[in-house]
Amino acid sequence: MIVQGREEDASVGGIYAVETMDVAYGYNNRSILFDNVNLAVERGKSIALMGRSGSGKSTLLRIINGSIKPIRGMVRVLGVEVYGRYSNGLRRRVAYIPQSLGLVDNATVLENILLARAADSPFRALLGLWRKEDVDEAMSILKSIGLYEKARSKVNMLSGGERQRVAIARALMQGARVVLADEPVSNLDQDNARSILDIFKEMGRRNSTSSIIVMHDRALAEEYADEAYMLADRRLSRLW
């Protein structure tokens, strides 16, 4: 599988795409969800983040995404220290795929993917007048992930696996250097799960895109992840 995406200088910001140092999060100082979380994700690597429900995996992902602030510690993404919200430049280099996927339900697959370029020409995007080169690139990405035929379908008419692919296609269109995916394969059968994880792997190889993937299936993680971490008892420990 050849995954299309923006070719960019992967060396900016050092060898690590994501680093966390002594990160802690809690709802107040007495109820700490996790503490001393240290993570270093190299560029192009796929990381599996595992742990029981409620252990804080999604929260850690949201901290890295800049959606919420940690109560302690430092987060660095693509060489930039993050204190809550990202700057716009960094923002577009990090794609966040939550469990709900964040797709625009009544829009077509193509429109969802083109949203990744809306910030380049907002007024054209507002009127739905997309640039031809953007449409061509989106179609090329769709072809590479096997959704070419579904370009004009509404995303709420797609299967779970197809919707997941659309979310990933949007991250590719975005030119993301880091993808944070919250349980992208949890509700998929093994074949679909493998094809999704293949795309993440290919993104790493081809575009040096790092991915942090929350998942539960250890066998799948062993098969696809370069490294795996377990979040349990408020600590993050490396599995391999």
Partner: peptide
């Protein structure tokens, strides 16, 4: 719509009108 949805769309750095 849900926070996660906002955050996912927010990661596209969309202007407010978009």
């Amino acid at each position: 719509v849900g926070k996660e949805h906002y955050e996912a769309l927010g990661s596209l750095a969309l202007p407010w009108m978009m």
